[in-house]
Each structure stands twice: as structure tokens, then as C-alpha cells.
Design a protein around this nucleic acid. Sequence first.
DNA 1: TTCTTTTTTGCAAGCGCTTTAGATGCTAGT
DNA 2: ACTAGCATCTAAAGCGCTTGCAAAAAAGAA
Lengths: 338, 338
Amino acid sequence: MDQPEKEITITDVAKQAGVSMATVSRVVNGNNNVKEITRQKVLAVIDKLHYRPNAVARGLASKKSTTIGVIMPSITELLYANLADGIDDVASMYKYNILLTSFDNGKNEEQQLFNSLLAKQVDGIIYMGEQVSDELYESMLNSRVPVVFAGAVDHKNQIASVNIDYVTAARDVVKLLIDNGNQKIAMVTGDLKNSINGDYRLKGYQQALEQGGINYSSNNVFETVYNLQAGAAVWDAINDSGATAAYVTNDLLAAGIVNAAMAAGKNIPQDFEIITSSNTILCDVTRPQMTSVAQPLYDIGAVAMRMLTKLMNKEIVDELEVRLPYSLVKRDTTKKNN
Amino acid sequence: MDQPEKEITITDVAKQAGVSMATVSRVVNGNNNVKEITRQKVLAVIDKLHYRPNAVARGLASKKSTTIGVIMPSITELLYANLADGIDDVASMYKYNILLTSFDNGKNEEQQLFNSLLAKQVDGIIYMGEQVSDELYESMLNSRVPVVFAGAVDHKNQIASVNIDYVTAARDVVKLLIDNGNQKIAMVTGDLKNSINGDYRLKGYQQALEQGGINYSSNNVFETVYNLQAGAAVWDAINDSGATAAYVTNDLLAAGIVNAAMAAGKNIPQDFEIITSSNTILCDVTRPQMTSVAQPLYDIGAVAMRMLTKLMNKEIVDELEVRLPYSLVKRDTTKKNN
DNA sequence: TTCTTTTTTGCAAGCGCTTTAGATGCTAGT
DNA sequence: ACTAGCATCTAAAGCGCTTGCAAAAAAGAA
């Protein structure tokens, strides 16, 4: 009884059903060239034997693994978790499995992850990192399988990507802060080498200032890391700078700032306004609740995955660089107008 | 140039290096039976050709995929994300890739996910769901590959699992609430059919009450779902019940309650105390910050994965049911004693 | 040197499935 | 009855790699 019951293979099914392997294969793969009665016969045997095709063998023979690779920074960051959620749903909708790899920021192991995914013969890859090295970029361009960026920008615009327009999003919210009467607005950001921050958001911030007739000063840009402590730590500097509002690029960081400001006795939003950038659940948890750019994270992931299916399928993709609409969710860290 | 440059295979390497495939295979797999000079020669060719072994072919030939499957509820729930984080780290430490599958609670698709993972020839599976159907349980027991539960209990204690002692954890915190002078303590929980809630935590809650000489009443047990709105929604009922403290089984739910109570003008912790159960980042984000059972989520995931490696390796595992120590992190939703 | 051992290699048989080329059996047309 | 034309099906060649077995080479032993 307890002996490792031999796995049943396509041969077993073929034998029992009195047909060839090829026919079983056709039935399993839904190929039409099988007489209905034969199909039934085969299906019956499959059912009886609990036959389950070996996906590895299938992959080797067909050169398709029905598996996609996902490269992401920490899975515990809500931003990425939400993107992954969208990817996952669409992937399973199209019967793809997900090979998940994440990297500790810093170590340049992304290239390695990428290679290992290729070695596993994934049919496509979704990348959600922050900055790709030239080498990795090169690998992606020459890759045998399609690559799509989700929530990550390709400055050279050669790789498919799904994002929101970070520039206008930043500009919009900073404009709102200006309209609300703020003259000195801090931008609190993560690594500026990440071009979403350093190129796009910063540009939007600067554009808004310019349009509002406010001089830009790098002194108002606070570069730090994405965690609560950093938020608390940076608060004093922000406050000392005389800023009356802050545009923050990360919800957790923003939560830290909100709490630090509250603890310092600031009255939010009357004395200080804050807008954050991802609209994760954290925006609803803090008190006051945070106004935020609402990135359609789930959708970004979902659309990226959908795009990948098309690419894998050699279908034409009209637009390589997709920009999904974002909105602004006003909560309680910004003043209510009229 | 743009023609799909043929993938280089072990044959190419063998030919170029003037050795047999077998030798190349040995070199690649670190088999010792290769003369050093030969090894160097082969490695040089591998390097030159950028040879990368096809993991699928390897898997088929060796019957090992160096891939494990992970079955989890929503990836966006911090609890699971943290478990997954630990799993991921240890998995990559042991060179395993992760095939991630998640399910929308409710639909009984877990069995299907399990089967699809087996079809993909994973070498082992980590399960993090809440309740396994009898059918699925049976499949797991008879599975060709080992299965480990992470943060999920096996009431029948036949499948390897890693958890904390939910009973004593619940008892401890409820005892603390009693010691703090509360006579009527609510338990706010998710689905009681999930045995972590319905069997373990509830039991701990009851034990603490009993030891404190307080009568248990199911009226003080509030069963709901895990989100912010539910927390807000259940608050009135809790308050009306006359409870002066609550033991909550989920951080997001707890955050909802904290905020609702504060909004209702309650003074926390003087008027109302709250203890939650997972010590995720949410505990630090709310104001007041939440006292919580500190489940070592990352470690649970890591240990589960480590156990799985042993199981996959046919090593002996002394204890099938691992209980990791938990602690209690006192923050500001409970009174400071002296 | 010759015979053993031991170390290195190569051969070739699969792993379980897909897929192409061609066989077989039917139906219909003439 | 004979053949063309389809619908079905089978045979068998891989897919790229691992691995047991045996041969070849190298190293000792006598």
C-alpha cells in the first residue's frame, strides 16, 4: 500500500484506452482531430486512472512552460503586493503559473534572478524593480521571451511597461497643495536614483512649483528610505525647513511623517498638509487618513500581465508603453476647499 | 542578427570542449569524478558560450525540479506576505524557486491549485490556508512530495506544521486584560470555522476567563471579517455590550476598531483596551499604537521552508509539529502597569 | 614490466510528452 | 468496383539533460 505508487503516464493511459500516445495527447490538449467516441473513451480512462500530465515533460517537448516569472523587490511592501495581486489574478485566468522571485534591494542579484527564470524556461517575465542595470537591460532586450515592466519605467522606452503618468500625478498633487495656499512644499522621496522619483516625480514637483510661481530649491527635497522610522526621523528637518506641506512618494513613509507631525502637536491639515502616492490601505489606517494619488496598483499588475500574454502569444500590441489613469483621493491630510 | 539565436545546449558545449555530454553534465552538477584540467576546459567553454542548463530538461531527467509550491490566501494580506517573505529567503538560500499560487477565499479551488503544483513537479509544497477540505487533506497525506503548513494548523497532527501556540498566546493576552482590571472582554475574531480562531484562540480566551473567574458568554464573541470597515462596523456592538477591552485576532480588523473607538470619543487605553494578534506594521501605524501578540511571522515561514528542505531531502525531522515562541509587544492600546 | 586498483570518461538508455509524416479507414463520386 | 479526399490515428523522432554501466586511462603494487 505504502509503496510509492508509480506515477501514471500518458503511456499507461494510451495502453488502457487502446490508442496511441498521440491520441491521448490530442485529447488532453483539446485537439479537434479526435473522433468523439475515442475522446470519450480516453477521457474515461484518464478519469479512472487519475492521470495528470507531467508539466515538465510537456514543457520540454513543447518548449512552453505555461509559467511566467515575476521579479520584485520585497513582497511585504504593499505597493508590490498589490501589483502582484493583479498579476496573479490575470495569470491564473490565462492558466499561467507564477514563479516568484524577490530580491533584497542593493545586492545586484537581479541579473541572476533573471537568468534563473530563463533557465526555468518561463514563457515571459514581469519586472517590478526600481532600476535596471545596463547589463540586465541588455539581457531583457535580447531575451528569448517577452518582458513587461509593471510599475517600473523604461527610460529608453523599448520594453513594454505599464505605469501611471508619474509626472502629471506629482504635478497635480503639488498644484493642489499650492492652491491650498502652501508656499513652501517639501518633497519627501525615496532614492532619487530610482527614476520614478528622480526623473518623473521630481519633474512634476518642479513643474507645479514653476507654474505656481514658486522657486524650486533642492533644500526642500528630502531623500530618505521607505519606512516608518525614516518618516519620524525626517519630520524635524521638514518642519525646520518651514515647509507647510509635503508631497511624499511612499505611504509608509508618509504614515511616519503624519504620526510624527501629530506627535509634535501639528494640526493636520490646518498647519500642515500631506499627500502621499500609492493609496494603499495605510492611507485609511492613519489618523488623519491620508490624501493620496490613487495608483490603480491592481490594474497595473493586471494589465501588465495581460500584455504579457499577448506578447507571449505573438499578438500585436498597439502601445508598448501603457499609462493607466490615476485619480486623487482626498482624505484628511489636506484641507477641504469650500 | 535578429534571428532567434539558437539556444546552446549541453551538446554544443560537449562538442566544443571535446568531451561527452556526460562529462559536461558532471561539471555542471559539481560531480567530483572529473579531472581538474577537464573541468577547467569545460568551464571555459561554458563561459564562452554562455551556456545555461535547461532546468526543464534537467527536471525531467532527474525527477527534481528544485521548485517548491506555495499555496496561500491573498498575497496582499500582511500576515501572509510576511510568512512568504521568510519562505522566500530560505528557499533562495537553498536554491529553490517558488511557484506561487493564491486563492480567493471561498471558492474551493485549493485542491485544484494543489494538483496543478503537483503537475508542475514541484519538490515540495508549503500551505498557508485556513481550512483544508477532507479531500485536500487526503491528497496531502498521500502526496508524492512533502507538505508543510506554515501558520496553519493540522488538527490531526499528521502533516508537518509551524505555528505558535495560539491557545496560550490568546490566554496570555486575555489574562493581561483581566489583570488590567477588565471584567468584560470582547473577543473579535474572523471566521470561527478557521480552527486557529474557533478552536485555539477561543479556547485560550475561555481559559483565561475561567482562570480569572469570569463567566464565558458567546455574546462577547464577535465574529466578522478581516478589514477596516468590519472593525468600524463591529465597534458599536462591542461598545453596547459593555466590554471594556477587546482581544482581536487580526491587525487590520483591530486597526478599524481602534479608529472607530477613538472616533467615538473613547479614551484608549484608559476606557478601552485592545490587543491584536499579528504584530504587523499596522500596529505601529495606528495611533495609539497597538499592543499585540508578536507572532514571529518571518520565522514561521523560514522554519517551515527549512523543514521542507529536510523533508525533501529525506532527512529525519525530529518534531513534525513545530511551535515557535511568541512574545507580547506592549504598546499604547493597553494600560501601562506601574 | 605486468597486473590491479582507482580515477576519468563515454555510451546510450531513458525521463514523459508533443508533433510531424505517413498509414488506415471511410465516405462519396463516377 | 475504384479512387479521391477526409477524418482519424499510429509510429517514431526528438526536446535537453541525468545516470548506470562499461571502457579507457592513470596510478599503484608487485
